[in-house]
Design a protein around this nucleic acid. Structure first.
Lengths: 336, 336
DNA sequence: CTGAAAGCGCTTACAG
DNA sequence: CTGAAAGCGCTTACAG
C-alpha cells in the first residue's frame, strides 16, 4: 500500500499539501491540486483510514451489538430487519459498521468494540445492567434499540408495545371473539411483557373475561416454543373452547398455527390466530398472518441518526423514542 | 480515553515496559508486571486497537460485502445464514467484522473497506468482473462465497449446485413424477443455473421428457416472483397436467406453493413442490417443504478459516471448495 | 530486565 | 499558498 509521502514525492509537493488537497480543506493552488490528483489517480491511492482515525480521534466506525441466546441472530426475522436498516442508514452517513453477535451477555464483545475505538454503539435487544454500566463508563455514545433499561438518560428507541397489544385485543374482540388464548413470550423481555399488558388492559377495560388461565407463558420466543406450548395446552384449549390465539410475536403465533393445521383445525375458520412484529414470513404463509407491524426500518434509521448526533455532540431532544405500531389485518383472523 | 503513557507514569515504568506486559511478549520482571497490571485494572485501560493496527499493519478486521439488488440483505433467509456463520467464526478467531450491503455493484463499498485497511474481505454472492479486478489490484486477501468467477486462482467456496439439482430430479422422479415443471431463478446467477443444469442432466439421462417448455425463467429469485410466475403459467401448467414443481430456491418454491394453496390445489396431494437451500421458512410452513440443504454454516466457517490463512500467508490447499448439499425430504413431496 | 528513540501514515497549527 | 515539525498511541529493535 502506498502512502502520502510517496504521493508527495511523485507530485513534487510536501505531504502537507497532499493532505490538504485530499481533505479539500485548507489552501492549495490549482496547479498543486492538479498534480496531486493526477498522481493519486494513477497510483490508485487510497488514504489510510486507520492513520486518519489516529489523529482525528474519530474512526467513523460504529458498532452494533446484538445479544441473543438463540440462533439466528443476524438473520433473525426481527432483529435482522433492524440490522438491515442500520446498515443502509449508516452507509449513507459514511459510517462503517462492525456487527457483533453474542450468545452470553458477556462484556467481551463490548470491550472489543471499545478497543476498536468505535465512535458509537447501537445495542439491540435487552441488556443486563452490568453491560450498560460497563459501556457507560467509557463515555462512548450509545443507543439502545428495542430494549429496556432502568438507567435514566439512556437514549433508547422502542416500539409502543403496550398500545400494540391493546390494538390486538381490540381487533380480536371486535371480530366477536370472547375466548382468546394468549401465548406470551418471556416476560423478562420488555416487548413481550408490554404486549401482554396492553392486551390485558383492553380486555379488563371491556370487562371481557381474561385471566391467568388464559395465558401460557413461554420460555423463549421461538417458533418451536410456540408449537410446543400449543401442544401442551391443547386439552386445556379445547376444553375452554377458545376461538382465537394471540402470540406475542409472529414466530410464536406461527408455531401455534402449525400445530393447529397439523390437527386439521381450520385457521381462521375454527380458530383465529394473530401475531406481532410483521416479519417476512407472516405475509408468506397460507393463511397469511394478521399481526401488529413494528417499524423496524424506522428503528434502524433513527438509531443511526440519533447516534450520529450524539457522536457530533449535537443536542438530542428525546431520550426515549416510541414508535407507533400498526395493525395489519390478513387472512388468519376473521369474524367469529 | 487513557493511554499507555499514563499507565507507564502511574506504575513507574516506561511505555516500553507497559507495552511488553500487555502484549505478553518480551521480558518484564514479575514486579513490573504486577504494578502495571494493577494500574490497568484500576483505570480500566483498554489498549487502542487503532494505534496497534497502525504499527503492526494488521487491523484484525475483516470486511463482508454482500451485493444484492433486492431487500432484505443481512436478514435474507439464505445470505443471512452465511453471515451469521461468518460472524460467529470470525469472533472466535478474534476478528471484528465490518458488514456492508450494497444494492448496486459499485466500487464504493469495496473502496471503503480498502481504506479501512481490513486484513481481508469476504465477498458474498455474484460479483461483476470489475469489482473483482478492482479488489485484486490492492493485494488484499479475499474469498468469494457462493459466487462464480472466471478469474483463475480466486479462492471461492460454493455449494455443489449441479449435484443438488440432480438429487432433486432423482427424488421427484423416484416418487413417480413424470411431468415436472421448473421455476428457474436468474440464469446469470451461478447457483440457479447449475441447479437447472443438474436437474436437466438427470432427466435427460433417464430419458424423461423435460424440455424448455417445462421451464419458466424468473426475473428474480424472490417469493413474489415465484408466485407471479406460477400464476402466469397456470393455464400452461394445467394443460400439461404437471404433478410436481421444482423451484431453484425455497423462496421461489414457496411462492409457487402459496399460489397453489390459494387455488385449493393440495400439496402434495395433487402437486408436489420442492425447493432448494433449506432456509428457516422451509421447515415452518405447512406442508413443510422438501428441499436440498446448503451447508451455510460450513460456508461461513470455511470462509473465515481460509481467509485467516491467506491473511497469515499460510498455504491454502484448495482454490475452489465445493460443499456437498443434502436432500431433505419433508411433507411437500410424496409418491405420485 | 528496562528505557529512549524511531516510526506506522496521517493532520494540524505555525512560520514563512 | 506551502512545507517543516509535532503529535495521535502504540510497537519494536537496540543499547545499556
Amino acid at each position: 500500500m502506498r502512502n502520502i509521502k510517496e504521493i508527495a514525492q511523485l507530485s513534487g509537493v510536501s505531504k502537507s499539501t497532499v493532505s490538504r488537497v485530499i481533505s479539500g480543506s485548507g489552501y492549495a493552488s490549482q496547479e498543486a491540486r492538479d498534480k496531486v490528483l493526477k498522481v493519486i489517480q494513477e497510483l490508485q491511492y487510497k488514504p489510510n483510514a486507520v492513520a486518519r482515525a489516529m489523529v482525528s480521534q474519530r474512526t467513523h466506525n460504529i458498532g452494533v451489538l446484538i445479544y441473543r441466546r438463540e440462533y439466528p441472530v443476524a438473520s433473525h426475522p426481527f432483529y435482522g430487519k433492524i440490522l438491515d436498516a442500520i446498515l443502509a442508514s449508516a452507509s449513507s452517513m459514511n459510517y462503517s459498521v462492525f456487527v457483533t453477535t453474542d450468545h452470553e451477555m458477556s462484556l467481551r464483545s463490548a470491550d472489543f468494540m471499545l478497543e476498536k475505538r468505535v465512535d458509537g454503539l447501537i445495542l439491540i435487544s435487552r441488556l443486563e445492567q452490568n453491560v450498560i454500566d460497563h459501556i457507560g463508563k467509557f463515555g462512548v455514545p450509545y443507543i439502545m434499540v428495542n430494549g429496556s433499561t432502568d438507567v435514566p438518560g439512556v437514549i433508547h428507541i422502542v416500539n409502543r408495545d403496550q398500545s400494540g397489544g391493546l390494538e390486538a385485543a381490540r381487533h380480536l374482540s371486535g371480530l366477536g371473539h370472547k375466548r382468546i388464548f394468549m401465548l406470551a413470550g418471556p416476560q423478562s423481555h420488555r416487548s413481550h411483557h408490554l404486549r401482554l399488558e396492553g392486551f390485558r388492559a383492553y380486555m379488563n377495560g371491556q370487562r371481557v373475561e381474561f385471566g391467568d388461565s388464559d395465558i401460557a407463558y413461554l420460555l423463549s420466543s421461538t417458533f418451536e416454543e410456540g408449537y410446543r406450548m400449543m401442544k401442551e395446552h391443547w386439552e386445556h384449549f379445547r376444553s375452554r373452547a377458545y376461538t382465537a390465539i394471540f402470540g406475542t410475536n409472529d414466530m410464536i403465533a406461527l408455531g401455534a398455527m402449525k400445530f393447529l393445521m397439523e390437527h386439521s383445525i381450520s385457521v381462521p375458520g375454527q380458530v383465529a390466530v394473530m401475531g406481532f412484529d410483521d416479519n417476512d414470513v407472516a405475509s408468506i404463509l397460507t393463511p397469511s398472518l394478521t399481526t401488529v407491524r413494528v417499524d423496524t426500518e424506522k428503528m434502524g434509521r433513527l438509531a443511526c441518526v440519533m447516534l450520529d448526533k450524539l457522536i457530533r455532540h449535537e443536542p438530542v431532544e428525546e431520550t426515549a423514542v416510541e414508535l407507533e405500531p400498526e395493525l395489519v389485518i390478513r387472512d388468519s383472523t376473521q369474524r367469529f
